[in-house]
Write a protein that binds this DNA or RNA. Sequence first.
RNA 1: GGCGGCUUGGCCAAGGGGUAAGGCAACGGCCUGCAAAGCCGUUAUUCUCCGGUUCAAAUCCGGAAGCCGCCUCCA
Length: 407
Amino acid sequence: MDDKIIKKSNETGEDCKTITEKYIDEFHNEMDTLNVLRPTVEPKATEHIRHIIDFIGMLIDKGKAYYVEGGDVYFSIDSFKDYGKLSGRNPEDMRAGARIAVDTNKKNPLDFVLWKPAKPGEPFWESPWGDGRPGWHIECSAMSYEYLGQGFDIHGGGKDLIFPHHENEIAQSEAVFGRQFVKYWIHNGFVDINNEKMSKSLGNFTMIKEVLETYSSEVIRMFLLSKHYRSPIDYTEDSMREVSIGLDRIYAFLERLEKAGVQIDGFKRGNLWNDFERAMNDDFNSARALASVFEAVKKGNKLLDDTSDIPDENILETLSFIYNDIKAISNILGMFLLDPQSYFRAKKDKGVADMAIDPSEIEDLILQRAKARKNKNFSRADEVRDLLCAKNIVLEDGPEGTTWRFE
RNA sequence: GGCGGCUUGGCCAAGGGGUAAGGCAACGGCCUGCAAAGCCGUUAUUCUCCGGUUCAAAUCCGGAAGCCGCCUCCA
């Protein structure tokens, strides 16, 4: 029912449903890739016209909405004394600042449309007020009533929707039911590029696809969680790279734990979990929560350093608490979900593909370097390492030989 | 014009009356043939600026500057 979709439909000849299905599919695919769980119910406005019409009917019956000659139904903001309470706006002030020509049919310039008559060439549904379609806002009140009842606990959305959309939802629902619509509003800040808001709606989803070409979904999640959800976050290559390095560090720690024989016992919870929980319970302070993970990683690395990666019974238990907690956290944040070997293998595969490098070539060079090192021919050894370094490949000499990775 | 938000080390970013988390980067040390990784240490007497309240302010109040968002029949 979005004007943009109707416009696109008229341009391409595809019907609206085909167009929206396409975007919904794309959205699903990208959310799946980002480890975003599917919602239990995803109601579509076009499948709830009946509920929407009923809802508008209730508003009219209560004297909160009115029909205007020509087919429009408007919500009367003067009939709802709390109008503006969410956004902190005063209707008087806004009336003075109105920038657009006022529709003379409205009782108050800020009244908003609940049902609008169909123009030629537009999709429409039959209604008591003539053929037409719902206005924006009403579907949220009607559908949330259908699935969640007269009021519910948490409503999310972007900051830009506070006014008018969420304000209008409150007006519609509270005008009908006379009780609190939503207990907690969660309004997220935007992802900016160069400190400017990203292009709206569909444009953002294209971005995700592009970012995924370079960074894994876990890097994207970690980037988003590195700042509080209410604040805007600026997308830059530098910050993505930094986050990616941080994620490597955490996975490297997990790998180290496994090599040291640390076991997971899913029921035990340690200090990390307490810190994490405290942070998340404080208005989803994900940045603080991530910091607690890094703190635990440092602590764990230190314990492993101190015991030369052969922890005794006691240390082993401490480490298993950390491992457990990280695993529990990973299920909440949708990160650190892979086993470390797969994580680093995937990273390697991607590097190999992106740089068009033959891994056997690298292995061969490493062999040559090993031989040179054995013969104390260190200049040759360093030469090999520099050669690989130029290709973004870092060598790490460990007790079990040399491993390599992409920087 | 109205409303809301933001400004914390080189960069990113928590904290929101009790004396500055965490990440990245840099430098020094341990380790290493040298590195890398990891660890240890150093890097903001100070939180955009100016006033005020307080025993105590990055945190509260007032003012200034800069940046961002919203104010449409856009979902």
